[in-house]
Simulated scan of single mutants.
Amino acid sequence: MIIVNRIFLIAVLIGVPFSVIGSLVHLSPILMFVVYSLTIVALSAFMGRATESLSAVAGPRVGGLLNATFGNAVELIISIFALQAGLVNVVLASLTGSVLGNLLLVAGLSFFVGGIKFKRQQFNVFDARHNSGLLTFGIIVAFVIPEVFSMSMEKAETFSLSVGISIILILLYLAALFFKLVTHRGVYSAKKEGGEEAHEEEPEWSAKVSVIVLLVATLAVAYISENLVHTFETVGKQFGWSELFIGVIIVAIVGNAAEHASAVVMAYKNKVAISVEIAMGSTLQIAMFVAPVLVLVSTLFDQRMALVFSMPELVAMVTSVLLSVILLNDGDTNWFEGATLLAAYVIMGIGFYLL
């Protein structure tokens, strides 16, 4: 682990200055796309370590929320710059990719890696069922409704519907946080499922250092993300990638690298409760906060973004939610369930590549 951390440190020390110089002297977009992506992944690793330190003090629920929030901050920043550039389809695709990435790739890798080391891993079944209900609402209800009604609506009416739904989603998400962290905090906890184990771990960094690392890394990611967006068109033409594939696979993986790494590491340490909270919590945050915020932010730009996804995107998200709910609702997991989720992600990835 020490070697990996040193590699990420070297990547940041080289990548950040090179990103600044490369953008100023206009180096090859293909080269800079690679540099920007690797640098964002390295910065995300530091964000993951900082949030892991905070979660050691705050517990798995708050730790998972912090990890998801700062992990999604990267994608939110990338998406805002993409909206400003008029790449609405890329933003919608990246939201789809985040849902698939978190529910299938992150959870799948976590369960697979953790399951190889431990035959059986358990987490709080009450949290899982609570999140499953919100997932069903946030993805199946809130995303399907605009798609269905848009078939009989004008473009302006569809956007108005999206704005209304976005406001409701944000309010319900805030209510869900209030429910979980305030009114019902600890009501459904179960120590044998790992609900309190995070408090026993010594944090790598102090809370002050962690916050500083998070802020600096987020600012650096914001600068690099703006430049990354401008390479999408050239990269897409060079490799034959569609905007859909770039958004669903590339942007989603780069934008969520922090929580991807943290979730897998937590599962390997037999702290699968945090992994589940990261995977499901991040998906909920994408669906019920990030996506609605982007809809509202798009009112500031020439091209507005409605919550209307393509049929392949919608079917892929609904399928991933149903599969995740079925596998996670028992509060128990193993490597085979992880392999099942990963297989579903690969199948969908192939489909989006060939589409």
Results as ranks from 00 to 15, higher is better:
L76W: 11
L76R: 06
L76K: 06
I78T: 06
I78V: 12
I78D: 02
S79V: 05
S79F: 02
I80S: 04
I80Q: 04
F81G: 01
F81L: 03
F81P: 06
F81S: 12
F81Q: 03
Q84V: 08
Q84A: 13
A85R: 09
A85F: 10
A85E: 13
A85L: 07
G86A: 02
L87P: 00
V88N: 06
V88A: 09
N89F: 06
V90C: 02
V90M: 07
V90T: 11
V91Q: 02
L92V: 09
L92P: 07
A93C: 09
S94F: 13
S94T: 13
S94Q: 12
S94V: 07
L95K: 12
L95P: 11
L95C: 09
T96M: 10
T96S: 07
S98F: 12
V99P: 05
V99A: 14
L100V: 09
L100Y: 14
L100C: 11
G101N: 15
G101R: 08
N102G: 11
L103G: 05
L103R: 09
L103N: 04
L104F: 13
L104E: 09
V106R: 00
V106P: 10
A107D: 02
A107T: 11
G108L: 11
G108T: 01
L109Y: 03
L109P: 00
L109K: 01
L109V: 01
L109Q: 01
S110H: 06
S110Q: 02
